[in-house]
């Protein structure tokens, strides 16, 4: 941190000012002039929290995508299909058993198994041919999409939020002071906060696993230099299968989350594939912290954009991507 300030004093100053402004916007009572200019503080806080929690969801999808890409140079364009498949599995399990938690476990296992099968049956045969692998994932995404359309139809599904998570929770964030002098606190859906906390836990766990365990070291070494892996005599195929399973399983979990937050329908696979692409391009290909940063940035941009400039919301997301590509083409937190 100190080195960053030393090397880029101007950027550091801008960042500090930006953080101060954001903190003020979140914690202060807005003066009437500001409310008149950009609307109520409650709307703003809701958009910010929605953005951050959506970022948590994006992180779940994109972390698997970036892990698979980083290690195997496999641009898995069927990642969105894995997400949607996980969501449908989660829906089926939760309506059948009524257990929300169980639907996560089953979705993770089933989608991870799909990942294992894909790696063993398909991608192992074309190792090192990244373009061909990508083509295969495109073909698979079409086939999966049509199969899922066949089975589940074009309807919208929503996974039932469990009773203990339903309803809002009061946050210690002031939105306004009533004329009577009574403070008004922000109400926010508990389920979104819980899911966000869970994705933070998963992210930290992944980071720890990558940085503190032997297999994590191997994976990281492989991301940095794939030739090292072969040289160390590690059973590289096993590592590949495990990483693919983990990445796919995370997409499956994300599907259940997305099905609870939002809804499941054909087309969601593409939406989340695009989100993963942009998150990973912005954050840095192959980097887990990068995926986290990118996910929060994109989540915030989408939510704030849709509140404040609804017809150009997508443009904001896109401009962020363009800006990153222009200034730092390898992504914000990538090594190279």
């Amino acid at each position: 941190m100190a080195r960053f300030i030393e090397r880029h004093p101007a950027w550091a100053l801008i960042a500090i000012i930006a953080i101060a402004v954001v903190l003020w916007l979140v914690f202060a009572i807005w003066p009437p002039g500001l409310e008149a200019a950009i609307g109520r503080k409650r709307v703003f806080l809701n958009a910010v929290l929605n953005g951050i929690t959506l970022g948590g969801l994006y992180f779940l999808v994109a972390s698997g995508f970036t892990l698979i890409f980083g290690l195997m140079r496999n641009v898995n364009l069927a990642h969105g299909s894995l997400y949607l498949f996980g969501g449908y599995i989660g829906y089926a399990i939760s309506t059948w058993t009524g257990s929300w938690i169980l639907s996560f476990i089953v979705a993770f296992i089933v989608v991870a198994l799909v990942g294992v099968i894909l790696q063993l049956a398909v991608f192992r045969r074309m190792e090192g041919q990244d373009l061909r692998q990508t083509m295969v994932t495109i073909g698979l995404s079409i086939v999966f999409a049509d199969l899922m359309l066949w089975v589940f139809g074009g309807d919208f599904y929503q996974i039932q939020t469990p009773a203990w998570l339903i309803g809002p929770i009061q946050l210690p964030l002031l939105t306004a002071i009533k004329s009577s002098g009574e403070p008004v606190y922000l109400q926010y859906p508990l389920v979104r906060l819980v899911i966000f906390a869970a994705s933070v836990v998963i992210g930290v766990a992944m980071w720890l696993a990558l940085n503190r365990t032997r297999i994590g070291m191997i994976v990281r070494a492989g991301v940095d230099d794939r030739d090292i892996l072969a040289a160390t005599g590690v059973r590289i195929q096993l590592v590949f299968v495990l990483v693919f399973a983990l990445g796919a399983g995370l997409a499956g979990i994300a599907g259940v989350v997305g099905g609870t937050f939002q809804s499941l329908s054909p087309g969601e696979d593409t939406r989340f594939l695009l989100a993963s692409l942009v998150v990973v391009i912005v954050g840095g290909m192959g980097s887990i912290p990068g995926a986290a940063l990118g996910a929060v940035i994109i989540g915030l941009a989408e939510q704030l954009g849709s509140v404040y400039i609804p017809t150009y919301a997508i443009v904001v997301t896109f401009l962020i991507m363009v800006l990153v590509l222009a200034l730092r083409p390898q992504g914000l937190l990538a090594r190279r």
């Binding site: 695009l274 692409l277 391009i281 991507m321």
Partner: peptide, 16 residues
Amino acid sequence: TEGIYTIMITLAIGAA
């Protein structure tokens, strides 16, 4: 960027 990244970036442009 180069190589396989092209697919990702152009797909993102198309989707956007």
